[in-house]
Design a protein around this nucleic acid. Structure first.
Length: 288
DNA sequence: CACTTGACCTGTCCGC
DNA sequence: TGCGGACAGGTCAAGT
């Protein structure tokens, strides 16, 4: 699922819902989803209190009073859903994609001392949750290599261009998806921002002009900010911390809209493969 | 070294 | 209806 806007939406939800709660128990049915040893879980998770919920790139960090953090990557189909005691059972809102929890894709269940729950669901099991000392999160190989946060106020066009210049001979779409160039862009927002900037995804980075970089910089930020405003994109099974869908797909201009009209020029949107991913463009607005 | 492809899993959809 | 294959929001390791 989740790219930067979806992970940020989950972060905001969890920030509101779980800070201050203390963890009573944690159970997992799949070692790949939560690989920590039981002794470590008992020592640093059970009995701890949630102090903060942060995000870096597409990674969530749930900070604990033990100076450990639960580091979570949702990958393609991960969900982190909070359920209060009174939500148990029937009566879920219609904008929810999921019913009673746990269900068959629940791989970790965390129970707080007040009887509320946090469920880690993941249909494809690519995602993971790891408990490690908060001070060591930055030492993870991914964290060391990941690029700057594109939505930060101090992230400049100059930085944007400099980061892409590291990969001159790859396609602009592959570079956008490369988390070491800039953080947080995935397949949806790569297609959306390239359309906004009138750039064909297969253009090589070294052929992109400064004006085009300026347009792309603006689009990446606008598109992802708009998506956060809309609660992210639910293309398939993304849900926020309350189990509800995001509505950005209603505003998407090309992503998963093959066969429909380009909102700018009316040309039929086409889909093909680029950078190994399904890719959507307007063949008139975006030319090689 | 730089870049691309396959693998990790499960579910769904589409064509035969 | 059943079955095989392609495809799905991400990232790494292995391959070229």
């Amino acid at each position: 699922m989740p790219e930067l806007p979806e992970v940020e939406t989950v972060r905001r939800g969890l920030h509101k819902l779980i800070i201050g709660r203390s963890i009573a128990s944690a159970i997992s049915d799949n070692p790949g989803s939560f690989p920590n040893a039981q002794a470590q879980i008992d020592a640093f998770l059970i009995g701890s209190r949630v102090t903060d919920v942060r995000r870096r790139a597409k990674v969530l960090m749930i900070d604990l009073s033990t100076d450990y953090s639960l580091v979570v990557h949702l990958k393609m189909t991960g969900q982190l859903v909070f359920r209060g005691e009174t939500d148990f059972g029937a009566g879920h809102p219609t904008d929810s994609l999921i019913g009673e929890l746990p269900d068959r894709s629940t791989h970790v269940t965390i129970t707080f001392t007040d009887g509320t729950h946090l469920f880690f669901n993941d249909q494809r099991k690519f995602g993971w949750m790891k408990l490690l000392p908060t001070a060591e999160v930055g030492d993870l190989p991914f964290m060391r290599r990941v690029g700057p946060e594109p939505l930060e106020d101090d992230f400049t066009l100059r930085q944007f261009i400099d980061r892409f210049s590291r990969r001159p001979r790859t396609s602009i779409k592959a570079a956008l998806l490369d988390q070491t160039v800039i953080a947080g862009v995935g397949n949806i927002y790569a297609d959306e921002s390239l359309w906004g900037a009138h750039i064909h995804p297969k253009r090589l980075v070294q052929t992109i002009t400064d004006d085009e970089f300026a347009a792309l910089y603006r689009e990446v930020r606008e598109v992802m900010n708009l998506s956060i405003e809309k609660g992210g994109s639910t293309a398939k099974n993304y849900v926020n911390a309350e189990g509800k869908r995001g509505s950005y797909m209603d505003f998407a201009r090309v992503f998963r809209r093959e066969g429909q009209e380009c909102p700018r020029c009316g040309t039929t949107i086409v889909k093909f493969k680029a950078a190994g991913r399904g890719t959507h463009i307007c063949p008139i607005c975006q030319q090689l």
